[in-house]
Simulated assay, not measured.
Amino acid sequence: MEYFDFSNSLSFIYDKRFDKLNFRELIREYPDAHNASSKKVISKFFNIPKGNLLVGAGTTQLIYELAQYIKKDNVLILDPTFWEYQYFFESFDKKVNKFKINGEIDWVSFEEEVKKNEVIILCNPNNPDNRFFEKKKLIYLIKKYPKKEFIVDETYLIFDKNFNRDSLIKETGTKNLSVLLSFSKFFGVGGIRCGVLFSSESKCKDLNKLMGFFITPTLNQEIIKIVLSSKKKIERKRSIILRQKEFMLRGLKKLNGLEITSGKSNFILIKSKKNIDLEKELKKKGLIVRSGKEFNLGKNTIRFSVQSNKKNRKLLLELGKLLT
């Protein structure tokens, strides 16, 4: 049986420029010990001073380092959200509290929870439900509570055409704000483990001391140069992914008894009115998706990423059979 994987959120578009890399040389060369070349490229692309960014072995490492570095105990995360925030902060004996989201974001209730905590972590848009916290309202809270640490993970926001407008990266001169961005998802390079932290210069200096040297291999540094070399290619990739997402949404709306949640990311969350284990049944057909059980959302809920048209058509076909 041929299997189609919709469970991870990596872009389905392969960058053919990778084929021109000279792997023989790249695996022999020592990397730049201080990531100077990578920082230069990222700084230029995002128009952020080099001192306000840090390159790590994926956002996983950067979340870990932040959890170790921040000397505050009460942490607020969303429920549901990406599991690593809770895992790493609890690993350093922090108390992790959860803000349950049902329907639209209740900003009054959210601010009350912000007041009670010292560190606020947001995946924006959120994984798995795509809820998005508006930039203007977040800036208001960040400035109103300067003694609280705000960590905003924008890994999925880069899929959206309004990324530059909605991103908080340009606001990271503010001492209590850190923004995370993974290269894995949008650029489809999960195997190289590359993430960026944008934050105050003092925080980046401190974290750099914790992380040490040679964090980014030579191959990673070359791939960063390639993927950030053309804004036109990035916009083209966004438009291709968006067309496939719109195709999926049109198809899903034709199916019976589905609650559909989409947003700025490249994944879609659906909930069936039928009491059916969607992930289990789809796996029998060679389709791998994320079960809602992983997020305490129930077996009749799944999250899947947008893939190629061939794979998307197959998923719609099998979902149609299950929901008839």
Score class of each variant (00 low, 15 high):
R17I: 03
A33R: 10
S184Q: 10
Q86E: 15
V55G: 08
P49T: 03
D5Y: 15
L168P: 11
G56P: 03
I70E: 13
A36L: 11
K44M: 06
K143T: 10
I48H: 02
K314I: 01
S308V: 05
F46S: 02
S199R: 01
E201G: 03
S200Q: 02
S11M: 08
G191A: 01
L10K: 13
I70W: 09
E171A: 12
Q61G: 05
T261Y: 12
S109I: 00
Y156I: 05
L122V: 11
K100E: 12
S9M: 10
F159Q: 09
K94Y: 03
N35G: 09
R165V: 08
V189G: 00
C194V: 14
D79N: 15
N275W: 00
S182Q: 01
K225I: 05
Y69D: 04
I223W: 07
N266G: 07
F18W: 04
K44W: 04
K209D: 06
E65I: 11
I13E: 00
L53K: 07
K71W: 03
K225C: 01
K100Q: 12
I270K: 09
D206N: 15
P146N: 07
F99H: 10
S43P: 07
L53W: 02
F23C: 01
F4R: 15
S262M: 03
K231C: 00
G263D: 01
R28W: 11
L54W: 04
Y30C: 09
L207Y: 05
D166Y: 07
I139Y: 01
I241L: 12
F88V: 00
I224D: 04
I268F: 10
K40H: 06
V108H: 02
I270T: 08
L207F: 02
K185R: 13
D79P: 00
N127H: 14
E113V: 04
D93E: 15
E65C: 05
K225E: 07
K280S: 12
L54N: 01
Y156S: 13
D32N: 15
R313W: 05
S9N: 14
K237M: 13
V179R: 06
C204F: 01
K71M: 06
L228T: 11
G56N: 05
K50T: 03
A36H: 11
I276T: 08
K310S: 09
K205I: 13
R313F: 12
I288Y: 06
Q68R: 15
K44Y: 00
K137G: 00
A33F: 13
L269A: 04
N176C: 11
C204K: 13
G257Y: 06
R290K: 15
R238K: 15
G188Q: 03
K16V: 06
F18Q: 08
L297A: 11
E65L: 09
I121S: 02
F133C: 08
S7V: 06
K116S: 10
T155W: 06
K203S: 07
K314Q: 08
D32M: 10
K71F: 00
I63H: 01
I48V: 14
P125W: 08
G298D: 04
K280N: 14
L122W: 05
F187T: 08
G51E: 02
K264P: 09
D106V: 03
F92D: 02
G51C: 06
I63C: 00
I151L: 09
V75K: 10
F45A: 06
L26S: 05
T216W: 11
K299N: 13
N97W: 05
A57P: 04
I139R: 08
S239C: 04
K225V: 05
L138Y: 00
I234F: 04
